[in-house]
């Protein structure tokens, strides 16, 4: 959806916004979606971001209470249920804009999804798609944890009974790494939010670090799931 690198000024900050149908001057986060004059659900605008959808700044530190409140308020007016008897193009626009709003809400509410959004917005990740992207910079997995993970797997296969304390120890280590990583991410977010939104080398450096940390976190999460599975299997034996 977001092709990068983008003009970092969001749509809502750029120009005076006019209704995509009647040209009425639009003001406010609700009018951004729905013209108060002709009741036309607005066409999605070129370069529109999830931040625009809620009229909030492009940053990590978001007031989720405000976002939720606005989500309900916009939904109340924009939902396809309100356009059942409207002309076909209004029905279609309500549906596509409501889909966009739903996704925007889902993304901004979830810290990991928000980080991924920011990376794609600034072109650090090429695409938010599900298929592995070849262009993506792969971060090497942390060697230490990978090694002890392999050892643990061997141990569990050879001697499931005595591996229990080791498994618990490993889990604690994983949890520790996850907490550290999360703290690191929070710190990086704060640094990012302090910088101007222009595509500067400093900004990019922070985003690359966020990218690397996210990939590490992903790796930890997938090991966590495997550990859960191993525990279940060992338990059922």
């Amino acid at each position: 959806m977001q092709n990068a690198p983008v003009d970092v000024a969001t749509v809502s900050q750029r120009d005076p916004l006019l209704c995509t149908e009647c040209g009425h001057l639009l003001d406010g986060f609700l009018a951004f979606h729905l013209c108060p004059k002709c009741h036309s659900p607005q066409l999605l605008r070129e370069g529109e971001t999830y931040f625009d959808a809620f009229g909030v700044p492009v940053q990590f530190d978001l007031d989720r209470g405000v976002i939720e409140k606005r989500f309900y308020e916009i939904s109340r007016a924009l939902h396809p249920d309100r356009f059942v008897s409207a002309p076909a193009h209004h029905r279609a626009q309500s549906m596509s804009r409501m889909s966009f709003l739903n996704q925007a809400f889902q993304t901004l509410k979830n810290p990991t999804a928000l980080r991924e959004l920011m990376l794609s917005l600034y072109g650090v990740r090429t695409q938010m798609g599900i298929l592995p992207s070849h262009q993506q910079k792969k971060v090497p997995i942390p060697v230490e944890i990978a090694e002890s993970w392999f050892e643990l797997q061997e141990l569990v296969v050879e001697n499931p009974a005595s591996s229990r304390p080791k498994v618990a120890e490993f889990e604690a280590e994983l949890k520790n790494l996850r907490t550290q990583g999360e703290a690191h991410l929070k710190a990086l977010e704060t640094q990012f939010d302090r910088l101007p939104r222009e595509l500067s080398p400093e900004l990019l450096a922070i985003l690359s670090q966020i990218d690397a940390e996210l990939q590490k976190q992903n790796y930890f999460r997938s090991i966590e799931k495997d550990v859960e599975r191993i525990k279940r299997n060992a338990h059922s034996d």
Binding site: S99, Q103, Q127, G129, I130
Partner: peptide
């Protein structure tokens, strides 16, 4: 369906509707 008969999820359960997913 992706390579090897695996499921590549585009829209997760309990996602608010209407919703949209795009794939190239």
């Amino acid at each position: 369906e992706t390579y090897g008969g695996l499921m590549a999820t585009l829209i997760h359960r309990n996602t608010r509707i209407p919703t949209v997913a795009r794939e190239v």
